[in-house]
Simulated scan of single mutants.
Amino acid sequence: MVIDHMRMALLWYRWSEVSDTLVLDRIRQGNKQALTVLIGRHHASVCSYLSTCLTDPGVVEQATHETFRQVHEAAERADLLTVNRIQLLSAARSVAIDIWRADPEGCAVTDGFRHWVTSGGSWPLEAPAALFDAYRSLPMRWQSALWHMAVDEDKPSVTAEVLGLPPGRLTITGQRARHALKDFYLAAYERSARDRPACLAHARDRAVFTTVVPGATATGHSSLCLPCAQADADLADLDLGLRLQLPAMLLGWWNDTAYQQMRALALRNSDPRPLSGSIRSA
């Protein structure tokens, strides 16, 4: 047992600054350790997300295994050139849908997931889109960083591993990502307000005040204007806005409370990280 823990510790040390994208590249090259590392980094999140879809723990684990199997096969075929947690959760959602549709009477699903699927699996297009659009304008690396930092609230060491960063560089990366997100948001905000003079003036004031005094309110206009009030709220706490808006906009189905609870439990019980069995093609 001591030897096993020593081997695992050595494995994580060797791969600690290898990004998920490079891990995927090594999977493509046939490195068996690489798949273990990818599973170890994301198993808790994938399994927790699937637990918000499916109610049988055995089926959840089956679906988790199937998710990583599909990713493994896609990597070997070179159909998948990059990987991140959002992609894995998206793949998990598709696996859950397929499992339920294959046996709708025998497969138990959560009420919320059943309602979401049967109502057409729609995305919340009526939700505020400015923050989402700004997020999607960022480089993929910064998108991934903000997901781990704002939505999943991962430990800095975990986020640094996923991005392939030395721990000391993560703070700088996060600052740059948030600064760019704010710039893209403000630019989109101004474009959307072109035909509304009062909103446009507020948007321009907000850009100045956000730069000088973060979180300051430039005028009283937003107290009477819902779109500008939403913009003020988004800019005052970007991380909160991302956590509230981003998952549903990216994944469609999302139960934040259930996901966070299951994930906290999975991470607390991991030793040293949650791993599943070997992945074999069907």
Rank of each mutant, 00 (worst) to 15 (best):
Tyr185Cys: 02
Val117Ile: 09
Pro156Arg: 03
Val151Ala: 03
Ala145Gln: 04
Pro247Met: 09
Ala44Gly: 06
Asp195Asn: 12
Ala96Phe: 05
Arg141Thr: 13
Met249Leu: 15
Gln70Cys: 06
Ala258Lys: 11
Trp100Arg: 01
Gln230Gly: 04
Ala193Thr: 13
Trp142Ser: 14
Val46Thr: 12
Asn31Ala: 14
Leu22Trp: 13
Gln230Asn: 12
His72Asn: 07
Ile27Arg: 09
Ala34Pro: 08
Thr110Cys: 02
Arg206Asn: 08
Gly215Met: 06
His202Pro: 00
Val158Met: 12
Val18Tyr: 00
Ile27His: 07
Val18Phe: 00
Ala229Arg: 15
Pro227Trp: 11
Ile279Val: 15
Ala130Tyr: 04
Arg204Tyr: 01
Ala34Met: 13
Arg14Ala: 06
Met249Arg: 14
Gln261Ser: 14
Glu153Gln: 14
Ala34Asn: 05
Pro124Leu: 03
Ser48Thr: 12
His221Ile: 08
Lys182Glu: 14
Tyr135Ile: 04
Gly112Pro: 12
Leu242Gln: 06
Leu251Arg: 07
Ala188Ser: 10
Leu251Ser: 11
Gln230Trp: 09
Arg273Ser: 01
Ala75Pro: 00
Ala75Glu: 00
Val18Asp: 02
Arg263Ser: 06
Ser157Tyr: 07
Leu235Trp: 03
Ser192Phe: 06
Gly40Ala: 09
Glu153Val: 08
Tyr49Pro: 04
Ser192Tyr: 05
Ala74Pro: 00
Met149Pro: 03
Ser122Arg: 06
Trp254Tyr: 10
Ala207Ser: 10
Asn269Lys: 15
Ala145Thr: 03
Arg194Lys: 11
Val46Leu: 03
Asp20Arg: 03
Gly241Met: 04
Gln87Asn: 08
Arg280Ser: 15
Phe113Met: 07
Leu250Phe: 03
Val117Glu: 04
Arg69Lys: 04
Tyr185Leu: 05
Val162Asn: 13
Val151Tyr: 11
Glu105Asp: 13
Ala236Ile: 08
Leu24Gln: 02
Arg28Asp: 07
Gly215Pro: 00
Arg176Leu: 04
Arg136Trp: 01
Thr21Asp: 09
Ser119Trp: 02
Lys155Thr: 13
Asp256Lys: 01
Gly30Asp: 10
Thr36Leu: 12
Ala160Pro: 00
Glu161Asn: 08
Gly215Ser: 05
Arg191Tyr: 07
Leu131Ser: 02
Ala198Pro: 02
Pro166Ser: 05
Val95Ser: 07
His115Gln: 15
Leu81His: 08
Glu190Leu: 07
Leu265Asn: 13
Leu275Thr: 02
His43Thr: 14
Ala63Tyr: 14
Asp239Pro: 13
Asp237Cys: 14
Arg268Phe: 14
Gly112Asp: 11
Gly241Lys: 06
Ser119Met: 07
Glu126His: 15
Asp133Met: 13
Val83Met: 06
Gly168Asp: 01
Val158Trp: 14
Ser192Val: 06
Thr159Trp: 09
Thr257Val: 15
Thr64Asp: 06
Ala282Lys: 05
Gly164Phe: 01
Asp183Glu: 15
Ala127Ile: 02
Ala145Gly: 09
Ile97Arg: 14
Thr55Leu: 12
Phe68Asn: 09
Pro104Ala: 05
Trp123Leu: 15
Lys32Asp: 11
Val46Cys: 02
